[in-house]
Computed example of a mutant assay.
Amino acid sequence: MTDEFSRIARYFVPLAGEEGLGLANDAAVLKPPPGRELVLTVDQMLEGVHFLSGDDPALIARKLLRRNLSDLAAMGAVPMGYLLTTALPAGLEETWLAGFSAGLAEDQKIYGISLYGGDSSSARHDISLSATLIGHVAPGAALSRGGAAPGDEIWVTGTIGDAALGLKARFGKLADPTGYLTGRSLLPEPRVGLELAGIVSAAIDVSDGLLQDLGHICRQSGAGAVIVADDVPASKQAAAFGAAMLEARLTDGDDYELVVTVPPDRVAAFKSACGALPVTRIGHMVAGEGVEVRDRAGGVLRFGKAGWRHF
C-alpha cells in the first residue's frame, strides 16, 4: 500500500469540496447557508460487525454515508458534506481503496455532498470506518423524537424487515433467489428530502429495529404506542416468509426507513409531503409507556427482544 499522504492525494482529495481546502490543512472551513442551523451526526462501521470482509468496498462506502444520511433525514435536515475517518490494515490492497473511493464519489453525486476532511490511521487487524455528516435546517425546524402525543398516528416509509432478512440470506439462513433482500441489506435508501417540519410530531430512522426505535419516541415523548403487526408493510419478498420471520422483521433493524408520528389533522399534508414514496399507517400513540404489538384480532404479541443491542 502507498503511504498515508499519497493515499489521501490519490483517493480522497478528488472527493473534497472547497470547504475542505484541498485536504491540505488541519481543518475545514464551513459556512452554513444564511439563516440556517447546522445538524451533525456521526456513525461508524466495523469489519466483522457492520460489514463482512468480502463485501464490495464501494457498497461499504455508500452504506457508511447512507446510514448517516438517514439520521439527517430523521431530523429533517438537508445534507451538505461529511468528515471521514479510516483505520485500515497495512496489507489492504489498493483495489479496495479504489473501490471504496469510487463508492463515495457515486453517492456524493446522488446526494449533492462532498468530503470536508477527516483522518486516516492504520489498524492492526480489521477495517474501521467512521463518517460525520453535516446538514442544515431552518431555525427551530429540526425534527425530534420527543413531540408525539396520544392520538397521533404512527406511519412508516417503505417496507420494514428487508435488510434483516437480507442479512440472513447472506449467511445462508434463508433463500433470496432474486437478490432483492440481500441488496436491501447492502445498500439502504435514506429518505432524505422530505419536508416534514410542522407536519410530523416526532421522527426517528429505523436502524436498530422498528420496535426499539419506536420505543425511543415513546420514552422521549412520555407516551405509549400500539401497532398492528399485520399492518407493518413488507415487500413481497419478505412477505413470502410469513409469520416465521415476523420477529426478525420488527426487531433486527438496518432498514433506514423513517417511523413518524402524525396528528390526525395533518395526515393529508404528510402524504402530500412524501409524494410518490410509499407510506403506511401501522398504529397510534396512547397514554402510557412502551410499544405494544397486536395481531389483527387485538391479541398482544410478545417477542424475545425489541431490537439490536450494541453492547
Rank of each mutant, 00 (worst) to 15 (best):
P264H: 08
T261P: 09
A74L: 01
V78Q: 13
G146L: 11
R10C: 07
A169R: 00
C218R: 06
S6I: 12
I127N: 03
A240S: 09
L52W: 11
I134D: 14
V279L: 08
A9L: 05
A234D: 12
H310D: 03
I127T: 07
A223W: 07
G298L: 07
S272R: 07
T182Y: 11
G304D: 04
L92T: 08
G183I: 10
E37D: 05
G298N: 10
L186N: 00
A287F: 14
R170A: 01
A268Y: 08
D56R: 03
A77L: 03
A269W: 00
L40D: 15
V49Q: 03
A164Q: 04
P264V: 05
P14Q: 04
Q212S: 10
E106K: 14
R10E: 05
D3Y: 09
R184S: 15
L211D: 05
A175W: 06
D126C: 09
Q108V: 06
L301V: 03
C274I: 13
L104T: 11
K236P: 11
V39C: 00
V291H: 04
I113A: 09
I227W: 13
K63W: 01
A175S: 10
R281T: 01
E106C: 12
A141G: 06
F5R: 14
G172E: 13
A138R: 01
P34V: 12
H284Q: 15
F51S: 06
G283K: 04
D208I: 06
A27R: 09
R170Q: 09
A9R: 06
P14M: 04
A287C: 14
R184V: 10
L143T: 02
Q237L: 10
L65K: 05
V49M: 01
G275T: 15
Y116G: 03
F5Y: 12
L181N: 01
E106Y: 13
Q44T: 14
V29L: 15
L65M: 09
D55F: 15
L133E: 14
E19L: 08
L277C: 15
G253T: 10
D252H: 12
V286M: 05
D176F: 15
L40M: 14
S207Y: 01
